[in-house]
Simulated scan of single mutants.
Amino acid sequence: MMKATEKLDVREIRRKLGLNQSQFWSKIGVTQSGGSRYESGRNIPRPVQALLRLVHVEQIDINKVKRDDVEVAEYLKTTNPELYKTLKKEARSKRKER
C-alpha cells in the first residue's frame, strides 16, 4: 500500500491500466484537460489523490459505494479498531483472489 507521502506517478498508473486520459480521469470525476495538467506535474489535491488510490490502485468501483458503507466503516474504525483492521485485511485478500 502506498503511503500518503509517496508521490503518485499517475501517468504510469494510467498507462499500465491501458486507459487514455479521458477514460482514466472520468472514473474519478476529473476532466481530461485537468488530468493532463496533473500528469504534467501540477499538484494533485488530497481528495483527488485519495480517489485515484481507491479507483485505480485498490480497484474499488466508487459507483457501488453507498453512504451507509462509509458511515459504518467510520463507526467501526472509531469504536472497534481491531475488528476494523481485521475486516479490512480480509476484504483486501478477497479482492486479490479475484
Rank of each mutant, 00 (worst) to 15 (best):
G34P: 00
R95E: 01
K85L: 13
I62N: 00
V10K: 01
L54Q: 06
K85Q: 08
R11V: 11
G18P: 04
S22H: 10
Q21D: 02
R37W: 06
T86A: 09
R11E: 05
R46K: 08
R53S: 01
Q32V: 10
K85T: 04
V72E: 11
T86H: 07
K96Y: 06
A4Q: 04
E74Y: 08
A91Y: 03
Q59T: 10
E97I: 14
K16L: 13
N63E: 14
D9M: 11
L17A: 06
R15V: 15
S26A: 10
N43W: 14
R11D: 05
G35L: 08
R42A: 15
Q49W: 10
D61C: 07
V30A: 08
T86C: 04
I28T: 04
G18Y: 05
I13R: 01
K16H: 07
L54G: 11
G35E: 04
K77Y: 12
E97F: 08
I28P: 03
G34N: 12
V48A: 13
V55M: 01
Y84A: 07
K77Q: 12
H56C: 11
R67G: 01
R14N: 02
Q23T: 11
K94S: 02
S40G: 15
E58M: 15
S33W: 04
R42C: 15
K94C: 01
E82A: 11
Y84D: 04
V57W: 05
L51G: 04
S36G: 14
R53Q: 05
K66S: 07
Y84W: 15
E39L: 13
